[in-house]
Amino acid sequence: MSDMALRSLNLPGVGTKYEFETDKGDTVAIFFTKTGRIQMYTLQKDCKTPSAAEMTPVEARRLGNILTGAIIEADQESVEIAFSALADLRITIHTYFIPDSIAGKTIEELQIRAKTGATVIAVCRQEKNIINPPPSFVFETGDAALVIGESDQIKRFEREIMVA
């Protein structure tokens, strides 16, 4: 009988181990080591030597996003979240670096909401985050804008605003 449950185990001096066996008999083990790095081992059924990958916490989180299905596009700057309870509402969040062409313009001038339907929910400027920028907000070159919307709206944003 295979034990389907996820086992977690504290290993003195090493860290925490999570292990589970899949339906088909493969084993996956994750170790959060005290070095701060995360090691993932996979062992195919009837195979003796596992293969391993070592990740930084950031890389591990990225892998986690992929496995939970949050990232649909391979592009790491975009995350799509599906809310299955809300009639499969799929929301995309995308980061864009502001090009020279729209620097100096405000959100209002660019008519982002009217033209695309997408919303700029945050801007990162020189390590500082501006959450919910007002319509009078003036973009500068090098700003990173976080845009939220349905994937069509995001595509329109890319076409109408970024390229224009």
């Binding site: 003195p12 090493v14 083990a29 070095t35 081992y41 596992p50 070592e54």
Partner: peptide, 23 residues
């Protein structure tokens, strides 16, 4: 312990034995 981590041997069944042996 460093050798187990660095050489990616944590999943070997012997790794548990070694870790507890150290304790």
């Amino acid at each position: 312990l460093t050798s187990l981590i660095e050489n990616r041997k944590l999943m070997l069944k012997e790794a548990d034995t070694i870790i507890w042996l150290m304790v």
